[in-house]
Computed example of a mutant assay.
Amino acid sequence: MKKEFLKFIKNYIKENKMSVITIIGAGMMGSALSFPASDNSHDIRIVGTPLDKDIIEQAKLTNYHITLKRYLPDGIKFYSDNEMEEAIKGSDLIIGGVSSFGVDWFLKEVLSKIPNSIPVLSVTKGMIDLGDGNMLTYPEYYRKYTNPYKSLNAIGGACTSYELADKDNTHVCFCGDDINVLRILKRMLETDYYHISISQDVRGVESAVALKNIYALAVTLAVGISEKKEGKGVIHYNSQAALFGQSVREMMKLIKILGGNEENIVFGAGDLYVTIFGGRTRKIGVLLGKGFNIDEALDTLKGVTLESVVIAGRAATAVKELIGKNKIDRKDFPLLLHVDDIITNKAMVDIPWDDFEIEREL
């Protein structure tokens, strides 16, 4: 066990004390974690990024979060980004609450300011393409450019921010290198509605929940196709289920290729399930299914953060690199490659249904 965490672990176990948790990034998911943190009687600080000024200003006045559309728990202290170092002082845990578009900002402006003795728990989902057929999860990306003794952990699983804030039963997985740190993080945040598994398979958990954004876009193509044919509000579940099944098959193969344990599909599939029912990824999937090309869809959703488009491009680039090296078979990823064709080549939606069929003899 790293020496930096011995004192942290011993003190927490000995005292089981109320802790100071600082959430950096005032987005919806990071802020939603203030609910289980508050229910465990911790002191909570929320620090906005440079893009969170309106959120922080309103929260300071009324405790209301303007994008989560919920009042946050009482007693939270709010800080602007230029007050971040003050907010970090005395913290027992830092939660990274930035979106995937804030990863480099978090790496450059935040991680270097966090003492090695304070664990970091990131909510950000996504991966970095290395250009050689391999990809890094965000914790691995952070690790590559930070002190090797820094405790970098992450959250994966099916969790929508507004339902966590409403205390609907939720099951996630905390992943990181040190199982003892993970056990303490679980004790700090677990409640009767926020249920936490822990795993040292960072790559498996994080790749599973990152990949789901690609496939949530893919599944919701069927919603757009149905609406184009029969009008808004008409939904066909057979086609969605078929795309969901193919998505899970391809995700399992990708998790294994990336070096993760396939059993982590439980977190990716659950996350896929919640993502197809709403949010930004559903919006672009529906537009594409209705016949918009990618440029038209992006223009319609101008100003909306679309992580699904980014991760789809990165994953497809890695897969095509491996196909070119004859390390994997193109026929194993028809849905991913069709999504890539839609995004990269502006192709219109034409689901390759026949390519999903398999024949297996015992």
Rank of each mutant, 00 (worst) to 15 (best):
K7L: 15
K10Q: 13
E15W: 09
K17Q: 13
I21F: 06
T22I: 04
I24S: 13
I24L: 08
G25S: 07
A26T: 05
G27D: 03
G27A: 04
M28C: 13
M29L: 15
A32V: 10
L33P: 14
N40H: 08
R45L: 08
I46D: 02
I46K: 11
G48H: 02
I56K: 01
A59V: 07
N63E: 12
R70S: 11
P73F: 04
K77W: 10
E83V: 11
G90V: 09
S100L: 14
D104K: 12
K108L: 03
V110A: 05
L111N: 09
S117D: 14
L136R: 06
Y138V: 03
K144I: 03
K144T: 03
G157P: 15
S161V: 00
Y162P: 01
Y162T: 14
L164K: 03
A165Y: 00
D166M: 02
T170E: 03
F174P: 11
N180H: 07
N180C: 04
R183S: 10
K186D: 07
K186L: 03
L189H: 11
S197M: 08
S199I: 13
D201Y: 02
I214E: 02
Y215I: 12
L217E: 07
A222I: 06
K228R: 15
Y237E: 15
Q240N: 09
S247K: 06
V248K: 09
G259V: 07
G260V: 14
N261I: 09
I265W: 10
F267L: 05
D271H: 13
Y273E: 05
Y273V: 11
V274M: 06
G279Q: 11
R282D: 10
K283P: 08
I284Q: 06
I284Y: 07
G285L: 04
A297F: 11
L298K: 15
K302D: 13
S308H: 02
V310A: 14
R314H: 15
A316C: 13
A318C: 07
K320N: 12
L322Y: 01
G324L: 11
K325L: 13
K325F: 04
D329A: 01
L335K: 08
L337H: 04
N345W: 02
K346C: 08
M348V: 02
D354C: 09
F356G: 01
E357F: 12
